[in-house]
Nucleic acid binder design. Structure first.
Lengths: 161, 161
DNA sequence: GCGCCGTATGTTACAGTGTATCAGCCTATA
DNA sequence: TATAGGCTGATACACTGTAACATACGGCGC
């Protein structure tokens, strides 16, 4: 699993350009700065096969003569995450890029493959109603939610049986 | 929210004894050792109001003359997590104790309160079917899942309006 | 131009999280 | 007693994340 899946397995191979284009449009619309560092970080994450840690990103962006500190990467990641261009995988402390829009009530689910280490996405709108009822029962007012499933992705199941 | 909620807000105040008793029974059944360190770690987590980090636990267990290293705490937490006596909150890198059994298909959900910092639990069995369908659509074979919701718990909503 | 201010970035330092490795200890069992 | 396996201690290290402060750059009013 080296891309992201949407819905019933809609693959986005090499979507680096997609997400960068979306970033440009978003920043233009909202009068935000799509700076070089932010672009570099986004391109690096988008080009990666799997999730990247902040220090991985910093290392890949650092060349002799231009060293990128991890703290700068974190700031760029915060910015990109805020815009929904990048997602944080809490159970891995790592980040993936995301080329498609996400709306509320969509039921975003992250799929973490134990075999190839890749991150997929799918949506399960059905779970929103049930989760909403459960939260009502518990008297809990939600603000944000994460759903992460660890297992084996389709590609690895085919490969290894 | 300084305990855990189960189902429609079933509270377990001061359940430290419950979970320790359950740990003893589990270890007896499975021929596992419920050592002093493991007991201490479990009691510390159970007695805490909110989630504890591994280093917090190590600090609380360290007294002059007996220093508990974080690495030992991690091993004990791994052991306890494996038995379902302790849960890890991925979005906080912290741990909470859990006095009740969990079965598959139960739809365990962690409720993280932004106001009081407490962790609650509830179950949403309804989401299992929907999530299962979504995973089928994506061709993904699940092994474990985490659902964490951040927001405001019932107690804090009453207190602050 | 000049100063002012807000945003972005650089730099350093530090706190927190987690793992690897090796050594010692304790206990059960032969 | 000897041995093997599980538990713990201790040290070191890598990774993750934040705080604090300095600097740079660009727009804006004067």
């Amino acid at each position: 699993m080296h891309g992201h899946e949407h819905g019933a397995g809609h693959h986005h191979h090499a979507h680096g350009l997609d997400v960068v284009a979306r970033a440009e449009a978003l920043c233009r619309d909202r009068d935000l700065q799509f700076t070089r560092l932010r672009r570099d970080v986004l391109e690096t994450v988008a080009a990666a096969q799997g999730p990247l840690g902040a220090y991985d990103i910093a290392e890949r962006l650092s060349v002799p003569g231009r060293r990128v500190a991890a703290v700068s990467v974190y700031r760029a990641l915060d910015f990109l995450t805020e815009l929904g261009l990048v997602h944080r995988i809490a159970s891995r402390n790592a980040f993936v890029s995301c080329a498609h829009e996400h709306g509320a009530g969509e039921g975003l689910v992250f799929l973490i493959c134990r075999t190839c280490g890749g991150i997929g996405e799918t949506t399960a709108p059905e779970i929103e109603a049930g989760l909403g009822r459960a939260l009502d029962r518990a008297g809990f007012k939600p603000a944000s939610r994460i759903v992460e499933v660890e297992g084996e992705c389709g590609a690895c199941r085919e490969r290894t049986g």
